[in-house]
Design a protein around this nucleic acid. Sequence first.
DNA 1: AGTACCACCTGACGGC
DNA 2: TGCCGTCAGGTGGTAC
Length: 259
Amino acid sequence: MPELPDVETYRRYLASKVLHKKVADVEIKDKLIVRSSEMSIRSIRGKRFKSTARHGKHCFLELSGGGFLALHFGMTGSVEYRGSGKVSSEHVRLVFSFSGGGVLAFIDMRRLGRVRVIKSIQDFVTKNHLGPDALSVGRKDFERMIRSRKEMIKSLLMDQGQIAGLGNIYCDEILYHSGTNPRKSASKLDSSEIGRIYNSMKKVLKTAIDKRTDPERMPRNYLLRRRGKGASCGFDGGKIERVKIGGRSSYYCTTHQLN
DNA sequence: AGTACCACCTGACGGC
DNA sequence: TGCCGTCAGGTGGTAC
């Protein structure tokens, strides 16, 4: 479930579990997810994780001696630390074991995740054409970006090259809160509506991170708790409908998002 | 530039 | 029970 709030939750989890521990061994259980040389991944042996960072849906662990381990979770990726014993999942793809005990596993059922070693986050962001992080982008830049495009607002928000971090679930959530039809052309949004989208984006992301993306803890009226057959809007009881946008299922309220 | 597909992957679920 | 299509919160490529 890895969009920005999930990845931020993983980042905090990693910061609390694996910092400053010495990596005693690295086990690559699935070569498919390793997207830099196996050598570079193996060379983490003997190093420590110094700090954590995140940009959009990418999580970074700084390595002692330079460089970063970059994690991307695809559709089903996650990380799990065990102080003792083994990680039980049958989809463990990569395992770091620490001196003095403990293991960190990268788990990914669908194998769409990617793990690599990089030199600098800045270069990585540039090379991968990532836009500014959705949590740090400023209102002015956000509005300029929206106004420069004609595509459907949802597709635009999903585009990692424009803003990094938003995926299918949270784009729907944000537009549901701002009362914007997901199919509306970005260039047709006026300043006040862009402001509503911007504010919804920040609020939704912060709420999700605060609740650690646990659906049970999220507010009842959130759309992500109402995806599915015959659901009704948490604001006005309107009918929630599903349509395809950019090939992805999109849910919206046929009452307050009709514009 | 915007959109519509296809591909990469695995698994769950509903219909017959 | 088995098979089949569809769907799933990601990204990258192609072609019109």
